[in-house]
Nucleic acid binder design. Structure first.
Length: 424
RNA sequence: GGAGAGAUGGCCGAGUCGGCUGAAGGCGCUCGCCUGCUAAGCGAGUAUGGGGGUUACACUCCAUCAUGGGUUCGAAUCCCAUUCUCUCCGCCA
């Protein structure tokens, strides 16, 4: 959520920023709404002040044994007037709040202006696309060939877009999770957390999934609970409604969770394989940062994600997402894309964002400096480190061999009984 | 699921028969004093959000004692609903 005062003071800048995101019309009617709201508020407050004063007088009179029935009668009218005005005020406030909750974050100045994914800017390329002297197979072909992935049976159990890992597939998924978590906790200084996989409405609103993107979520019938689409949601909300100590910042958390996404609107996209699933595993990084250093923290987080890809020796590139392609809550986002040999393209495997105070304002996460009055919103950052299913897919494709076997990346071998290859 | 207890400021904790209680007291924190160091001591200050106001302060008003309603001239205090926490019983991985 943007700061109401900021919007008021910087209307044109906000309009431009929203325009760059392709949402120019979002704030139509804002100014009128806000000014009537303020007029109403002033009226209500004035009446309340009157009532407070006179109620004090009544108290004194009664104490002194005087008759205050006249004043009480007057105040009865005032109170009912207040109630009427308040009804109108609450309506305006609700409308305004709803509008505000649907306005995306303002892009950072270093974000390229652009319309869609074609305008993203590649900032780095690491490794070279794996070379094959034959036509490389898709990871689902390899996985099904080895008997470690079974999409048909998964569909029977649940439906399309669910994974079933078997044997070494399940083992490698688990190895990846352990490898990623170990790297982030032991080498990068993150604290491991294991959060709930279902969250309530308030939590979903705190990070920005609600109210605007309900159709992307799985909701539990009969409950106001949702399955998390990413660990960012529960982990960022760990400190909701808290005031942190400045010296505790930055705080680093990493979490492994499954993620659940309805993938509404992606019918026909990536229908095969592990790329686009209703349920997938992810290791997430979350930071709570001092506003002054959040962009350094973003660079650090990006490196933490890159480290995983480097250690796995997978070719990848880094994109600076343009204004039109960024997520709702982000002020700046780097995407990491891994090389997928069968399709011959780079595919997103991580997304690292600085949300600045956008989520912190929604979730009410602040910090206090020693000796200073007041509390300031922290900056929140989140990034995948990495999407596990897609990582496994990338390994299958990049490490495949002509005979259908797959070499196990060296860093994973300690987690897989020291073995070097998965074969039938 | 059954029975009960509770939810107050950064934290702990008091709030009598509804009326200067935005809220005692303590801790913590900040500033100052004092003590040749440390500890202790003394004094003052210290919630959040919003409106108005100011170059910025000052100042001023409103709201907030889990949340939402209600009663009342007036509610942290009374009533109702909801949520959460805790204790006991039952059930269960």
């Amino acid at each position: 959520m943007l700061d109401l005062k900021y919007i008021r003071a910087n209307m044109e800048a906000v309009r431009t920023a929203l325009g760059n995101r392709g949402q120019a019309a979002l704030l139509a009617g804002f100014e009128e709404l806000e000014s009537t709201r303020r007029t109403l508020l002033a009226e209500v407050e004035d009446l309340r002040r009157q009532r407070n004063e006179v109620s004090g007088t009544i108290a004194t009179m009664k104490r002194e044994g005087q008759d205050a029935s006249g004043l009480m009668e007057d105040m009865k009218a005032v109170s009912s007037k207040i109630k009427d005005l308040e009804t109108g005020l609450h309506e305006k406030e609700a409308t305004l709040n709803d509008l505000l909750m649907r306005v995306p974050n303002i892009p950072h100045e270093s974000v390229p202006v652009g319309k869609d994914e074609h305008d993203n800017v590649e900032v780095k390329k690491n490794g070279v696309p794996t070379v094959f002297n034959y036509e490389p197979s898709a990871h689902w072909t390899i996985g099904e060939g080895l008997g470690i992935l079974d999409f048909e049976r998964a569909a029977r159990i649940t439906g399309s877009r669910f994974p079933l890992y078997l044997g070494d597939g399940a083992l490698m998924e688990r190895a990846l999770i352990n490898f990623m978590l170990n790297t982030h906790t032991l080498k990068h200084g993150y604290k491991e957390v294991l959060p709930p996989f279902m969250v309530n409405k308030k939590t979903m609103t705190g990070t920005g999934q609600l109210p605007k993107f309900e159709e992307d979520l799985f909701k539990i019938e009969g409950w106001e609970y949702y399955l998390i689409p990413t660990a960012e949601v529960p982990v960022t909300n760990i400190h909701a409604d808290e005031i942190l100590d400045e010296e505790d910042l930055p705080i680093y958390y990493t979490a492994f969770t499954p993620c659940f996404r309805s993938e509404a609107g992606s019918h026909g996209k990536d229908t095969r394989g592990l790329i686009r699933q209703h349920q997938f595993n992810k290791v997430e990084m979350v930071k709570f940062s001092h506003p002054d250093t959040s962009y350094d923290e973003l660079e650090g987080m990006l490196q933490n994600a890159e480290t995983i890809l480097q250690e796995l020796d997978l070719p990848y590139r880094v994109l600076n997402l343009c204004t039109g392609d960024m997520g709702f809550s982000a002020a700046k986002t780097y995407d990491l894309e891994v090389w997928m040999p069968e399709q011959g393209v780079y595919r997103e495997i991580s997304s690292c964002s600085n949300c600045e105070d956008f989520q912190a304002r929604r979730a009410n996460i602040r910090f206090k400096s020693k000796g200073k009055k007041g509390a300031t919103h922290v900056h929140t950052l989140n990034g995948s480190g990495l999407a596990v299913g897609r990582t496994l897919a990338a390994i299958l494709e990049n490490y495949q061999q002509p005979d259908g076997s797959v070499v196990i990346p060296e860093v994973l071998r300690p987690f897989m009984g020291g073995r070097e290859v998965i074969e039938k």
